[in-house]
Amino acid sequence: MKFRLLFFTFLFSFLYTSAQDDWGWWNELHGWESGDPGWRNWIKITPGYMGPNALPVPEIKRGFITEETEFQVTASNHFHSGDPTQDISAKLFLPFAKNRIAVEMWGVLFEYFAFSEEIRNERIARNKDGTGVAIGDFYFSTLIQISKDRRFPNTLLRFATKTASGNQLESARYTDSPGYFFDLSFSKDFGQKEATLFRPFGLIGFYSWQTNDELNLQNDAFLYAVGSEIVKNTWLFSGSFSGYSGYKNEHDRPMQLNFEMRKDFENRAVRLKYQHGLHDWKYKTLRVSFIWKFKGIS
Rank of each mutant, 00 (worst) to 15 (best):
T85G: 07
G107C: 12
Q192V: 10
G202T: 05
F182R: 00
Y207L: 03
A114T: 03
F181S: 00
W106F: 13
E111A: 10
R62A: 10
N154W: 02
R120L: 04
G202C: 10
G82Y: 01
Q192I: 09
E111I: 05
Q72F: 00
R62Y: 14
K98C: 08
E70H: 06
N77P: 00
L156M: 09
F113W: 04
G63S: 10
T66E: 15
F198K: 07
F138L: 15
N167Q: 11
E117A: 11
P84H: 04
F96K: 06
I65Y: 08
P95T: 07
K98E: 13
T196D: 06
A164L: 07
F140K: 01
E70N: 13
G132L: 04
E67A: 15
N167W: 00
T196C: 11
R100H: 15
F110N: 15
D83W: 01
L184S: 04
S187C: 08
F138D: 03
L156P: 00
F201S: 03
Y112H: 12
V103I: 14
R62T: 13
K91G: 10
K91Y: 12
G179Y: 01
S76V: 01
S89R: 10
L156T: 02
S177A: 14
D189H: 10
N167P: 11
G136C: 05
F110W: 15
S185N: 04
Q145L: 08
H78G: 01
F190R: 09
A195N: 15
P200I: 07
R199N: 14
G63N: 03
L184Q: 02
S81A: 09
G132M: 01
I144N: 04
D83I: 00
N121K: 11
S185T: 07
I204Y: 13
R151L: 15
R158T: 14
F115L: 05
L143C: 02
K148S: 08
F93G: 00
S81C: 03
K91W: 04
Q72M: 13
P153W: 05
K61N: 13
F182E: 02
F152R: 00
G136T: 04
L197I: 03
P84K: 03
F190C: 11
A160M: 10
